[in-house]
């Protein structure tokens, strides 16, 4: 009797090849931003610095993971006709939790992200995964799918943040405890452009501070990804 109970528990939380694929697929072949084109809305405006993008990525991973889990747990009790509203309420409650937690833990970043934390609700990744995956799958797999898609989104977000901050401000992780000053005109930067013989020509690229640069960076990322992964190329 006890043995079967253990066996059942194992089968609920198993982590095999299929489950690993749920986590890794969204990182490249089925990336939420560059392939599924979901969740761009709240992504672009927060990526001018790495630290807020990282916070945003963690918030989104939390919301996708747990909204998938809860929707999947409730999937047999949600009537088809009101499922959108039920899903939205689940997401909105989770986002409220995230918002209040962030406000308490790190007020400056909360201010910086402003309305974009609230906009996780309408982040199409969350809704999209609930509709496409959690409504038809078991809780544990839905949870992994949520984590995977959140990660796929977070990777792009942080990558864009790194490019924009490095070339736009010459620093990394500004505003966090581990701020790195890499290249800039004063002595506290790693490479000081006022004194350096080699880097005297260097100036920060102000375009990278503008939100429009995020569009270019993602566009170029798509270009690079599709040159390697030719099955994603748009044939129409």
């Amino acid at each position: 009797m006890a043995e079967t109970a253990v066996k059942e528990k194992e089968s609920v939380f198993q982590f095999g090849k299929k489950e690993r694929k749920l986590l890794t697929d969204p990182l490249n072949d089925n990336n939420p931003i560059t392939v599924q084109v979901l969740g761009i809305c709240s992504a672009l405006a927060v990526t001018s610095l790495v630290y807020p993008s990282l916070v945003m990525a963690i918030a989104v991973i939390f919301v996708t993971a747990f909204s998938s889990l809860f929707t999947s747990l409730l999937r047999n009790y949600i009537p088809k006709s009101v499922r959108m509203i039920v899903q939205l309420v689940i997401i909105a409650s989770l986002v409220t939790v995230v918002e209040l937690t962030l406000k308490y833990l790190n007020y400056p970043v909360y201010k910086q992200l402003s309305v974009y934390i609230g906009l996780i609700i309408t982040n199409c990744i969350v809704m999209g995964r609930l509709e496409a995956f959690s409504m038809a799958n078991k809780p544990w797999r839905s949870f992994l799918d949520g984590v995977g898609n959140g990660l796929g989104y977070g990777v792009i977000l942080v990558a864009v943040g790194v490019v924009r901050e490095l070339f736009g401000k010459g620093s990394l992780f500004a505003g966090s405890p581990i701020e790195l000053k890499i290249i800039g005109p004063t002595a506290d930067y790693l490479v000081n452009t006022t004194d350096s013989m080699l880097f005297g020509w260097y100036a920060n690229n102000n375009l990278m501070v503008l939100p429009a640069s995020a569009m270019f960076i993602i566009g170029i990322m798509i270009w690079i990804q599709r040159s390697y992964n030719t099955k994603l190329v748009d044939v129409s």
């Binding site: 503008l210 640069s213 569009m215 270019f216 566009g219 190329v233 129409s236």
Partner: peptide, 16 residues
């Protein structure tokens, strides 16, 4: 590789 989506991103950036 830039057709479709990639181009739309870059266009939006320019319009921005």
């Amino acid at each position: 590789a830039l057709r479709g989506l990639g181009m739309a991103f870059i266009l939006t950036g320019l319009m921005g």
